[in-house]
């Protein structure tokens, strides 16, 4: 589609090169099917994840700002008059880039400090490109009706529980209600599926607790899986949420003393299936919890 006023730099982030490869594969395939061009940010670097924030505030802004600056330089070089946005599928990356964008916009002294760091790489960030989440772009720029037009294989009869997690919603409420989100609903319906009604769609998955406080992490995950019981599958928009919800289902089932197994897909995998994209092009074999028809019948091998 040529009448788009936005053009997109693609920021995969580190997880999408490793544990969340299928999120990268499926995002690229879905965007190609929707005729949205993604331009890679030249030489992008890690956004610092949650590590930089705990270690040093300036570093936690400089790492994402470096990516914003790299994109801004590439946008200028493109000589295109369109507004350039950075599209991130990972919620943690999206938030780090958004935070650097928002905090430097609101505080000129901070922008000067951040730019003093970026000057080490001969770069500056002037606010010319914005950070956008994949879900924001799908829901607001592309829209459910355009997604619906691409659907060739409606997922009729499937009950899908949308899970948003935290970082795409809070603290910057850019494109959805930060506590009762709903932007995934029209997209799920456009795919021909039902939206499973539940109330933990914006509850925290525990983030890195699974590594640093596993007993607390498993408890949060168990609560979410319990609430999703009755749905055929969970859909996520973040690699951290995805791995927390898909990788510990045996442990959660033991803790809850009930079967909590459920298929967990990334949103572009779900929409891609409805659009008739081949499973290999959606990286479905890489998921840790995805049954053939998305209905878990039995408990699989324990971990």
């Amino acid at each position: 589609m040529k009448n788009f006023t936005h053009r997109y730099f693609y920021y995969p982030g580190c997880s999408l090169e490793g544990t969340a490869k299928e999120y990268d594969i499926s995002t690229r395939s879905l965007m190609a099917a929707l005729e949205i061009e993604l331009t890679d940010i030249p030489d992008w670097n890690c956004c610092g994840a949650s590590a930089a924030a705990a270690q040093g505030e300036l570093l936690s802004l400089a790492l994402p700002a470096l990516n914003l600056a790299k994109a801004e330089a590439a946008a200028q070089a493109s000589k295109s008059t369109a507004a350039w946005d950075i599209l991130s599928p990972c919620s943690a990356c999206y938030l780090n880039l958004k935070r650097a964008e928002a905090e430097t916009a609101r505080n000129p002294a901070l922008r000067a400090r951040v730019n003093a760091v970026l000057a080490e790489k001969d770069l500056q960030y002037k606010g010319g490109v914005q950070s956008r989440h994949l879900l924001d772009v799908l829901a607001k720029d592309i829209g459910a009706s355009r997604v619906g037009h691409a659907v060739t294989n409606p997922l009729s009869g499937l009950q899908v529980a949308p899970y948003y997690g935290c970082q795409c919603l809070r603290p910057y409420a850019v494109f959805d209600d930060p506590e009762i989100p709903g932007t995934m609903n029209p997209l799920i319906r456009a795919a021909g599926a039902h939206v499973f009604p539940w109330n933990l769609s914006a509850r925290c998955c525990g983030a890195a607790h699974m590594n640093t406080h596993p007993e607390v992490g498993i408890s949060l995950v168990t609560d979410i899986l319990k609430a999703a019981k009755g749905a055929d599958l969970l859909v996520t928009v973040c690699p951290m949420c995805q791995i927390n919800l898909e990788a510990y289902q045996n442990r959660a089932s033991r803790l809850a003393e009930e079967d909590l197994h459920i298929s967990v897909l990334y949103l572009p995998q779900l929409l891609g299936l409805a659009a008739g994209i081949a499973e290999e092009k959606l990286g479905l074999a890489l998921n840790l919890a995805a049954e053939k028809d998305f209905r878990f019948e039995t408990i699989n091998e324990p971990i």
Binding site: C166, R170, P171, E179, C204, H209
Partner: peptide, 8 residues
């Protein structure tokens, strides 16, 4: 876990 619910 930085969920920002309290801030909100």
């Amino acid at each position: 876990s930085s969920c920002y619910t309290c801030t909100l």
